[in-house]
Simulated assay, not measured.
Amino acid sequence: MIIEMRTYTLKPGTLAEVEKRFGDKLPEREKHSKLAAFWHSEVGPLNQIIHVWTYDSFEQRSAIRAAAVKDGSWPPPIQEFVTDMQSEVFLPAPFSPPLTPRQVGPLFEIRQYTLTPGSIPGLIERWSDKIEGRTKFSPLVGGWYSEFGALNKWVHIWAYKDANERFSVRAAAAAGGQWPARNPPGVVVKQENAFVMPSAFSPIR
């Protein structure tokens, strides 16, 4: 399975209209494949939407997108509001849960780490030892490593009821020795995070 995460930056003040148009068009698009998640940014880079799709392979992705464009079901008419578009393709770590519909939020934290080349396998091994203990505190939505787009990238997404729960969960996990899964010095060269919220039509919310 591959996971495509598409991040669009919008003109300020256009989010509500973009989500409406996206949602109106989605039933047609989902005749070809299902949306996994749709979020918009609350803290971090503002005026962004993130939509996540899963495919069996790159070949299936190309075929589905071509078919959706051909029959007019995609893309939604939002181009006038978009100032930047980014597409990244990830592979799931062995412990990453399936991207099936569920209500675990509504606050999601997307954390993105850039690692030194060749460091992803070691990170996944260290996380594998810790992840069971960490997920007792809050659900993991995804643990993915990049295949296309920005390379040497590790993305992990966590669900919380609100920001207060996020801070209390991280403190409790650290106090109990369940987290974090420590990396050797110098392995992580960049870290970013954002709080996002789901749209009304997001399957994961």
Rank of each mutant, 00 (worst) to 15 (best):
A63N: 15
A63E: 15
I64M: 13
R65A: 07
R65W: 15
A66W: 09
A67K: 07
A67L: 10
A68S: 14
A68W: 03
V69I: 14
V69G: 13
K70D: 14
K70L: 14
K70M: 13
D71K: 08
D71Y: 06
D71M: 01
D71N: 01
D71G: 06
G72N: 07
S73G: 07
S73F: 10
S73P: 02
S73H: 10
W74F: 11
W74M: 08
P75S: 01
P76N: 06
P77S: 04
P77W: 00
P77K: 12
P77L: 06
Q79N: 15
Q79D: 14
E80T: 02
F81M: 13
F81N: 05
F81R: 02
V82A: 02
D84V: 09
D84P: 09
M85I: 13
M85V: 13
M85H: 12
Q86N: 14
Q86D: 12
S87P: 08
S87H: 12
S87W: 12
S87K: 12
E88P: 11
E88Y: 08
E88A: 11
V89E: 03
V89A: 00
V89F: 10
F90E: 00
F90V: 07
L91P: 09
L91E: 14
L91Y: 14
P92M: 05
P92V: 05
P92L: 06
A93S: 10
A93R: 02
A93Q: 04
A93G: 01
P94H: 03
P94Y: 03
P94C: 08
P94L: 03
F95Y: 10
F95V: 03
S96G: 04
S96F: 00
S96H: 03
P97K: 01
P97V: 06
P97I: 07
P98F: 04
L99E: 04
L99W: 03
L99C: 00
T100Y: 07
P101K: 09
P101F: 01
R102L: 08
Q103W: 09
Q103S: 14
Q103F: 11
V104H: 10
V104I: 15
G105A: 08
G105C: 06
G105T: 05
G105R: 01
G105Y: 02
G105F: 05
P106A: 05
